[in-house]
Amino acid sequence: MEKLIATDAVKRGMAQMQKGGVIMDVVNAEQARIAEAAGAVAVMALERVPSDIRAAGGVARMADPRIVEEVMNAVTIPVMAKARIGHIVEARVLEAMGVDYIDESEVLTPADEEFHLLKSSFTIPFVCGCRDLGEAARRIGEGASMLRTKGEPGTGNIVEAVRHMRKVQAQVRKLTLMNDDEIMTEAKILGAPYEILKQIKEAGKLPVVNFAAGGVATPADAALMMELGADGVFVGSGIFKSEDPEKFANAIVQATTYFTDYDLIGKLSKELGSAMKGIDISRLPQAERMQERGW
């Protein structure tokens, strides 16, 4: 009857329970309540949504613990929060506060340009962004229990999330067809831990869920990511930058559940008002691309 906490099954299982759902960025208790009422499976508590971080410039840090606490008190669904890449203390503070998941996030300004957190040393599970299988396997190797595409946050442009989702899936498919004697070289090419690649090859899939994130701006975007094999969807700036957040949040939740029901998605997309304004990625200077943060 021994009680084991923070095992892989407990950490990864938590993310499995979020599958098919929408995780929404919120900056206060009121938004958290709107998200919960719309059927979000979790909320991400932060100080500013990515598009505002982009606009504000400067250094983006972990949210004020007061905001995180306010959100935790406002809802009964899980609460996630972001720590800067490699910022051990921000992550420990969020852990001490008892948030349910930590996002080691490129949306914030990295605290360490060389090393990511050793996520396996925490009780709280982590989600991390990835653009390809190498990055996915490195994060799993460090102990991430959930993955998401990096996409390009705060742009309202889905193109990068699509690229990252397709890339990881294609690389997993390729891996499963390899002979065992080809895996070490693949590990070298991808810069990925050999043991993790071996596990993925044997299982035929990633050992953790992979959500879509970074640019989801409409119900159709969310459904597209599900169609491409995402396990669920993070929506950052999209909801509370839209004209009618409540309606928008409801529509995204339903489009994610019924992602192949195109009549429904058409209906849901009517009268939503305008979505957030999008940014063409090619007009975004290299230095402003959040997906380039981390490695």
Partner: peptide, 9 residues
């Protein structure tokens, strides 16, 4: 919360 989640026989 998640922090207290566990497995046990």
């Amino acid at each position: 919360r998640q922090r207290e989640s566990f497995e046990a026989a």
